Simulated scan of single mutants.
Amino acid sequence: MADISVIIPIHNGEKWIDNCMKSIASQSVLNTKKRLEIAVYNDGSTDKTQELLEKWEDYFKSRGVGFVLARGKTSKGVGAAKNGAVKISSGKFLCFQDIDDIMHPHRIYLQWKAAKSNHNALIGSKISRLPINSTPRYSHWANSLTNAQLKTQIYTSNGPTLLMPTWFCHRSVYDKVGGFVETGHGTPEDLIFFYKHLDAGGDLHRVDEELLVYVYHEGAATFSVKRELIWKIQLDRIQQCVLPHWDHFTVWNAGKAGRRLVRSLSPNNLNKVVAFCDVDKNKIGHNVELYCPIERRVIIKLPVIHFTDAKPPLLICIKLDLSNGEFEKNLESLNLSEGNDYVLFS
């Protein structure tokens, strides 16, 4: 049995394999007594992926490093591939690695140190991007979240506050969740796993060092995920986990995003909305009537007030870091507590 299994799903990844495997071969944990294993599931690749994996299998085994490899005839998606790799692995701890990313030399060792004292935690890390500055807002957000925000900013369009390519955990975390959903391409399997982990009482922790080079390219699996599905999953969860605790709330953003949210609320939660708030002088002081074309009636009429007049709790439908800091300054001026007085849904 291995101490740590590196879990790698792969589909047509021939161009990335060598760099990824070289970074694993350079891990400092290999200089310790910890037994490392690499578990790869080839998800129906049609290029030279299998041939290259078999070469690396020979290389690692010659160094006394475990390497297990399974292959599917057809591609069933990332969730199924991750589950397939975990199934053939034996490690007490799981280190998830995408084939197109590159580990820093101390990644596995430092995350193992964090995970060994917290078997209930999903462990992440900071990242660097390649090409450099390819997604500056996303990288800044992920790397600058506080420990508290790891659990509060879980409803933004960025997805999980711990980026999936950096995940590391005790095997019991995976078992408790029950693995990744296997509904095929376009499914945000990482977000669904993340929410299930939190719902099961799971903890979150980030090693505050850049331990992974997160490679940005057009063929990345993340681009196959349906944004509409992410939005729906997040809306469903916020209605199940946040809004039941609020008797009333104000929606910050009287524009398109805020109106879309209000239209999509359940009847019970719709009745809790008391106003929109905004900074736009052209909207403040007016009423917004939301019309339902199916029912052919106005479902709600709400006043638009200045954000300084809004009483918490607030459901904020504004993306971060898009207004040269103006929104963030406005929010900070209210001296509110994130997670209690307001929740970001963007």
Rank of each mutant, 00 (worst) to 15 (best):
A310S: 15
L314Q: 04
H170A: 10
L243H: 04
F168H: 10
N282W: 15
H119I: 04
Q240H: 13
I102W: 01
D3H: 12
V6W: 05
V207W: 01
N143M: 10
V65W: 13
Q149D: 02
V78D: 12
V298M: 12
A115E: 08
A121M: 01
K61G: 13
W56Y: 12
R35H: 03
K283N: 15
E218P: 04
A81S: 02
I102L: 01
W16E: 02
L320F: 04
T46D: 08
P293Y: 11
I24Q: 03
P165I: 01
S28M: 08
N19H: 07
D43R: 11
S23G: 07
I305T: 06
E332Q: 11
S337K: 15
G285S: 14
R263A: 06
I108D: 01
E289S: 15
Q239Y: 11
W246T: 09
N253A: 05
L30S: 02
S346P: 00
A200L: 14
G44T: 07
L243C: 09
D199T: 01
N42R: 06
I316F: 00
R237A: 03
S134D: 04
I8V: 05
S139N: 07
L261M: 09
K73V: 10
K92G: 02
S144Y: 01
G77E: 12
K232S: 14
V304M: 13
C317I: 08
L302C: 09
E37A: 05
L302W: 03
K48H: 13
S337M: 13
T161S: 05
P244S: 12
S323G: 00
H197A: 10
I10A: 07
K176F: 05
L162Y: 00
F60A: 15
P293A: 06
V215N: 05
